Simulated scan of single mutants.
Amino acid sequence: MIFRCINLALVILLLAVTATCASATDALSQVRNMPDASLLLLDGNGEAMVNHRPEAPRIPASTLKILTAWLAIDHWGLDHRFATDFFLDGGQVLWVKGYGDPMLVSEEIERIAVRLKAKGLTTLHGIRLDGSYFAGGLSIDGRSDSSNPYDAPVAALAANFNTVNVRKTARGILSAEPQTPLTDVAREIARNLKNGRQRVNIRDSRLSARYFGEILQAKLQEQGIEVTGSISNQPLPGELPLYYRHMNSHTLEAVLRAMLRYSTNFIANQLFLALGAEVGGAPADFEKSRRYARQRIASRFHWQGFTMVEGSGLSRRNRISARQMVTLLEAFRPYRGLLPSPETGIQAKTGTLKGISCYAGYLESRPFALFINQPAAYGLRLRVARELLARIRKPSAPVR
Rank of each mutant, 00 (worst) to 15 (best):
I2W: 05
F3E: 13
L15H: 00
S23R: 14
R32S: 12
N33I: 00
M34K: 14
D43H: 01
G44V: 06
A48K: 06
V50P: 06
P57S: 08
S62Y: 08
L64A: 12
A69M: 01
L78I: 14
G91W: 03
G91S: 14
G91L: 07
Q92L: 12
V105E: 08
S106P: 08
A118S: 15
D130N: 05
F134M: 07
S144W: 09
S146L: 10
A152H: 04
A176V: 01
K194Y: 00
R206S: 13
A209M: 11
R210E: 10
F212A: 00
A218H: 15
G224Y: 10
I225H: 06
I225N: 03
I225Y: 05
E226V: 15
V227Q: 08
Q234K: 09
P235D: 05
G238E: 14
H246G: 00
A254G: 01
L260I: 05
A268V: 02
Q270E: 08
L273C: 05
G276C: 03
G276L: 01
V279Q: 13
G280H: 08
G281A: 06
A284R: 04
R291F: 09
R294V: 03
R296L: 11
I297E: 11
F301D: 02
T307E: 14
A331G: 06
A331R: 15
F332K: 06
R336D: 13
R336Y: 09
T350D: 05
T350W: 11
L353E: 06
I356R: 04
S357V: 01
A385H: 02
L388H: 08
L389T: 07
R391V: 09
K394T: 14
K394D: 14
P398M: 07
